[in-house]
């Protein structure tokens, strides 16, 4: 289950100055919204957001994105407070390690070690290189995020 209160880029865009001034280093405010979601940008990276008129928006975005979020190489963000260590993502990920040959219906299994492991009751990325998102031809798989019952996993890329 994806995070219930997950904000989409267009929703975030509404809180931004929408001036496309490029001072933040990206071509538009919408691109900045995408940058915020992938955690490559922080709300305070936008110089206009530091102005008083955008203070409420800045506070809201700061609260939403929190501090010190560590995005995994696969583009995964783990909310350690929410994770219950049920291991659903571990097995769901195992079960999607294959490629369907459309037309023939055959499944070519990928012989790779598990991406996830539950350590101390919380999910941990053990072999990020096994993730289909990190393959030579990346596949934007979202199974772990979709199967997470608590919304603790969020794919930000």
């Amino acid at each position: 289950m994806p995070k219930k209160d997950k904000m989409q880029p267009l929703q975030l865009y509404r809180y931004l100055p929408r001036s496309n001034c490029k001072k933040c280093g990206v071509p538009s405010c919408l691109a900045f919204a995408f940058g915020l979601i992938s955690r490559e940008k922080k709300p305070e990276d936008c110089p206009d957001m530091l102005k008083d008129e955008y203070r409420p928006s800045l506070d809201l975005l700061k609260e939403y994105f929190g501090e010190g979020a560590q995005v995994e190489k696969t583009g995964l963000l783990i909310d350690k407070d929410k994770c219950t260590g049920c291991g659903d993502c571990v097995i769901a990920c195992q079960k999607c390690q294959g490629t369907i040959m459309f037309g023939t219906g055959t499944i070519l299994p990928r012989d790779v070690p598990d991406v996830y492991k539950i350590v101390d009751g919380i999910v941990d990325v053990k072999h990020w290189e096994s993730c289909k998102r990190c393959a030579d031809r990346p596949e934007m798989c979202r199974v772990c995020e979709e199967r997470c019952p608590t919304g603790a996993l969020e794919l930000v890329k």
Partner: peptide
């Protein structure tokens, strides 16, 4: 020092 595979309930009961 480290618990593997146990859920949060299990690891908290072990620790």
């Amino acid at each position: 020092r480290r618990v593997e595979n146990a859920c949060r309930k299990g690891s908290s009961s072990l620790y």
